[in-house]
Write a protein that binds this DNA or RNA. Sequence first.
DNA 1: GCCGTTTTCGGCCCGACTGTTTTCAGTCG
Length: 585
Amino acid sequence: MDVTNRYIARVLEKIADYSEILGENAFKVRSYRRAAQTIESLDVPIAELLDRGEAIPGIGKGIGAVVREILEHGESPLLKALEEKVPKALIRLLAVPGIGPKTVGKLIRELDIDSEAKLEQAIQAQKIRALPGFGAKIERRIAEALRAAHDPNARRPLADMAPIAREICRTIARLPGVDRCEIAGSIRRVSERPKDVDLVVATRQAKTVAEAVREVAGTGHVTAFGPDKVSFTFEALWPIPVDVRFVAPEQYGSALLHFTGSRAHNIFLRQRAKMLGLKLNEYGLSHGDGRLETFADEAALYARLGLPYVSPELRDDAEIFAPARVRLLDGLISSEDIRGDLHMHTRSSDGGNTIEEMARAAYARGYRYIAVTDHSASLKVAGGLSVERLKAQVEEVRRIETRLSEEWGAMFYIFAGTEVDILPDGTLDYPDEVLAALDFVVASVHTSFRQSRETMTARLLSAVRHPYVDLIAHPTGRLIGRREAYAVDMEAVIEAAARYDKVLELNASPYRLDLNVDHLRLAAQAGVKIAISTDAHNVSELEQMHLGVQYARKALIPRSMVQNAMDPEALIAYLSRNRGKIRPR
DNA sequence: GCCGTTTTCGGCCCGACTGTTTTCAGTCG
């Protein structure tokens, strides 16, 4: 069995959950959680580090032994022992809002509940509300949770959550007395599946605004209401928990930082403040004499703590302040580095805008080039181009490129390309001579997702090896929250991309984000260039580039590894490597 | 259980709100 870092982290987290319920020392529980987090964020298998005898922060003698056991046997005797003491039905209660480990622990100890059946009986007999510290409300919540068929903590894809968060934020920003409203939390950190919406509001009239926000919540269920905070459930197609915090404008920086997290990042910053003899909270830095130092923006606070500014998407990385990571920060890709977009569709296939409209929108973004990559012939549902239509499109691209470049008084490159289907047998959907005549060839899988891992891997490898293929788009085919990635040996694909000097895509669509962070890191380590592409089907989707860049930063991708951060001249030189100088002019 | 410019014992991040209570433990982020 292949024991991954992630698997070990899950086991340690479970140990923490069970121990907490059983009333173990809270700091011991915290140690397990912290170790889990550290292991999950490691770049290399923990076995290698242990073998080399390297010290890993937060992992000492005790947890080290637990990890070794998991590595050797694939399971943990400690966890097994804990599982016997805490029944599964009760563990699930931890997901119920308002119910934590202490509550679950009391149910076990005070009422001797060790099964779902006994839990039901206790509810029926109203035994839970009789316990000291409990009441009818908690009992009812537990009963509801038992009845709820679905996971109460379901996480939705970023693509669904972010627009809703923006809409709620816009509504609140318009309320009287509100200076500004911003999205914080996991959405701001570009989490693939945020669990809730966190908003931070700057205002001098918190109380009034809180009342107004309660009105905004409307039919939604208000779960907490106070002068500093309102929580409610927003009823979209599914219920979304929303937290809104109110702070004074001069405290906005510390508040935004605090409510953006991650939790581990906050803990690090507070420890740092403590080292400096200060105390950090959402209101600012408290001095020993009670004086409060406030920060209107985040950057000033990082600077005050003597730390480099860390952008939100990097704050899930528990090791971000390690010297080796800090050295990378300045070199990471950023939106200003992007010179073009190499994957987009037009009205010729399933896009909504013309070539010229896409080009003008890209130029307005400051780009120097785009690639037009409509679908290939066999993808009928997307209006794939026949060979004849593709040839006509190439001519049209040339005409528009010339005209726009003249209009703008500078060369704007429009690469005539395709997103050619990789057919189930690994061949491409256009003959070689057709591909040879194009500037840029994107290849991707749109059919037969259920092939075996071996078949799918071979299919992708043959595309990587194909001399006219430049880039593999959305390499794993995942649609976050909708469709799993197909089975494929991505390490083999990355290795082949390195060997054949091919580019892998980071598809910036919020539904895709494909490659994912783990694969991006592997690709970067292997020296494979990444193209961050929007796969835009209309001009407004070109905006997704920003999300793609943020996601690439999560994987610590430097600008030097991003193909569409290259100047057009260098890109043309690269594209000419297998097909002679492209577009003689 | 981990760790050390507070250093091998004694700490370990911080605050708002809820529910069940008349002062606070538990939960959550």
